[in-house]
């Protein structure tokens, strides 16, 4: 059994690297877009608010697997032929935007509204105030939730194996197909996922402490 794991570990780690790339890109792309959607959800214009709410409701209310399949089949239909990995990143990004917007909204609510009013009074423009006053504080407040969202996207990225992206899950399936040892291989994959997620929550706790000290 040890030999089996040893033989297949390099390719599994390569798959794990792919898992990290796909979910990492989605999370990082999702951050600025999630922020924009957050300001959309809290906008004073009713139609902006309503549109943002609908976007959120749709992406938070349907299974990510179905979203992934729709994106994967929809893109070629409207004339965009992309590699599965790009479709995977697009789907995960569009999904995390909706969740990150909600996380940022929570952070926004925790900042006293007086601050923004004061900034506006001294003549700072709305977007400048958002950029320099709200966003830095929001980030500090939402780091624990952002780490949770990252873990959740990392776990959900296992689903992109369905559209043939060779990340950890897909690589494991391929190994099982040739070795017929599902139990050992899938347990090994599970251990890799747990280690990555453990490291993530560790990093999250460290940044949290760092920012708390600076504040």
């Amino acid at each position: 059994m040890l030999a089996l794991i040893q033989d297949n570990l390099p390719i599994m780690l390569w798959g794990a690297g792919m898992t990290i790339v796909v979910s990492g890109v989605a999370i990082i792309l999702g951050m600025p877009l999630g922020l924009i959607l957050c300001f959309g959800v809290t906008s004073r214009k009713p139609w902006v608010r309503r549109l943002s709410r609908i976007y959120q409701s749709v992406w938070r209310g349907t299974p990510i697997l179905v979203q992934l399949l729709i994106i994967y089949y929809l893109l070629p239909l409207i004339g965009i032929n992309v590699a599965p990995i790009l479709a995977a990143i697009v789907a995960l990004t569009l999904n995390t935007i909706a969740f990150q917007a909600e996380i940022f909204r929570g952070g926004l609510l925790a900042i006293p509204p007086g601050q923004l009013e004061a900034a506006r009074m001294v003549g700072i423009r709305k977007w400048a105030a958002r950029q320099h006053i709200l966003v830095p504080q929001m980030f500090r407040l939402v780091i624990p939730s952002l780490v949770n969202e990252t873990i959740s996207i990392l776990k959900n990225s296992s689903l992109v194996s369905v559209i043939a992206v060779t990340e950890l899950m897909r690589v494991s399936q391929q190994i099982v197909a040739t070795t017929y040892r599902p139990f050992e291989i899938y347990i090994a994959a599970a251990v890799i996922y747990i280690i990555i997620n453990f490291l993530l929550s560790l990093i999250g706790r460290m940044t949290e402490q760092r920012l708390a000290r600076r504040a």
């Binding site: 873990i151 776990k155 689903l159 899950m169 040892r181 599902p182 050992e184 899938y186 599970a190 996922y193």
Partner: peptide, 23 residues
């Protein structure tokens, strides 16, 4: 609790469904 929360559901299902028979 920590293990379950760090695991994709897909892999848990695979371990049970495909790995289960071998134990």
């Amino acid at each position: 609790i920590e293990i379950m929360r760090g695991l994709p559901i897909l892999i848990l299902l695979f371990v049970l469904y495909y790995g289960g028979p071998s134990i």
